[in-house]
C-alpha cells in the first residue's frame, strides 16, 4: 500500500469569466522513503494539487477526485476534526517564501512550539526542549538563544530552516516542499536540499518536491511527474526522464536548460509549437 495515492484529481476555479480548469485528472503515488518531484512551469497546477490535498484551497475551488488515500484512509471522507489530525501532523508542508510564511509577530520558538501544542500532549517544558532539538536538527547555531528571535532577525535561509523545523516537529510521514529553495541563493539552496534529504533519509518519510528547476529535480528526486497546464505529461524515474524523455514537452524543458545548449541560440518551448497548439485544442474541447 502506498503512503499517498491520488487518482484522477480535478480542480476547477470559479472565475468571473466562467470556470477555469486548473487541474485536469492527475494521479500521484508516493511511497514511504521516496522522493517524488512534481515539475512544471507556472500555471501547470503543481501547487494547486498539493493545496487540494492539504485542504488549503479557497471556496471558489471545486475539487473532485476518484481516490485520495493516505495510508489507506480516504482523506475526502474524514470529518474536519479527523482531517486536522492528519494534516499538519502526518502530512506537513513547507512553502516557497520562508519570510512571508512565518508570522512576524511571534518568536520562532513559539511558532514551532505551536505545532507541538496542537498535535502532541507534551508539557510546556518538554515542548521547549523539543523545539531546541528541532532547531539543532535543522542546523541553526545556538538554538537556545534563537528561541526568542523574531523572523525578521533571521536570514532567508535561516527562516527556511525554521519552516522545516516546524514541518518536521510532529515527525510527519509525508512532507511536501513547495519550491523550498526558489527564493534562496545557490549555496544556501544546496544546504537546504541536503538538509531535507538527510531528514528524509533518517526518518524514512515520503517527500514531495514541487519545483520548476530541473537541476533541483536531478539532485533530489527518485521519481518525477511532469505537468503542463493542469495535465500530467509524463511520469518516470529520474534517470529515465533525463536519459530518454518520452514526452515532447519534457524534451522541450530539458533542451531549454542553458547547460544543454549546443548551438548559438537556445531551443525554446515555442519551437514545439505544434505540440502546444494541439494541447490547447484538447483543453478547449
Amino acid at each position: 500500500m502506498p503512503l499517498l495515492e491520488i487518482r484522477n484529481l480535478k480542480v476547477e476555479f470559479e472565475t468571473a469569466s466562467g470556470p477555469f480548469k486548473a487541474l485536469d485528472g492527475v494521479d500521484y503515488t508516493v511511497d514511504s522513503g521516496e522522493v517524488l518531484a512534481i515539475v512544471g512551469e507556472s500555471g501547470s497546477g503543481k501547487s494547486v494539487a498539493m493545496l487540494a490535498l492539504m485542504g488549503l484551497l479557497p471556496d471558489t475551488a471545486t475539487v473532485t477526485v476518484d481516490k485520495m488515500e493516505f495510508e489507506g484512509r480516504d482523506i475526502t471522507k474524514l470529518s474536519a476534526t479527523d482531517r486536522r489530525q492528519v494534516i499538519g501532523k502526518d502530512i506537513s508542508m513547507i512553502f516557497q517564501e520562508p519570510i512571508a510564511s512565518l508570522n512576524p509577530c511571534f518568536t520562532v520558538g513559539f511558532q514551532i512550539g505551536e505545532a507541538l501544542k496542537v498535535h502532541t500532549d507534551l508539557s510546556s517544558s518538554d515542548r521547549s526542549r523539543r523545539v531546541i532539538e528541532l532547531l539543532e536538527a535543522v542546523g541553526i547555531p545556538e538554538p537556545k538563544g534563537r528561541l526568542s528571535s523574531f523572523p525578521h532577525q533571521m536570514s532567508g535561509g535561516q527562516c527556511q530552516r525554521v519552516m522545516i523545523a516546524m514541518a518536521i516537529a510532529c515527525q510527519p510521514k509525508l512532507l511536501i516542499a513547495d519550491e523550498p529553495t526558489t527564493a534562496l541563493d545557490v549555496t544556501i539552496q544546496k544546504q537546504i536540499l541536503d538538509l531535507l534529504l538527510k531528514l528524509q533519509e533518517e526518518s524514512g518519510m515520503g517527500l514531495i518536491m514541487i519545483t520548476h528547476d530541473m537541476g533541483v529535480v536531478a539532485e533530489t528526486a527518485d521519481r518525477v511527474v511532469v505537468q503542463y497546464q493542469g495535465r500530467q505529461m509524463e511520469e518516470s524515474d529520474v534517470l529515465t526522464l533525463f536519459e530518454s524523455p518520452k514526452h515532447p514537452y519534457t524534451k522541450a524543458l530539458l533542451s531549454a536548460l542553458p547547460e544543454n545548449a549546443t548551438g548559438d541560440r537556445l531551443p525554446t518551448v515555442s519551437d514545439f509549437r505544434e505540440f502546444l497548439e494541439s494541447e490547447a485544442k484538447k483543453v478547449s474541447a
Binding site: 549555496t187 530541473m214 537541476g215 533541483v216 536531478a218 533525463f242 547547460e259 544543454n260
Partner: peptide, 9 residues
C-alpha cells in the same frame, strides 16, 4: 553548490 542535471551526476 549549483545543481547538476547531467546524467552522470
Amino acid at each position: 553548490a549549483t545543481p547538476r542535471a547531467d546524467i552522470e551526476s
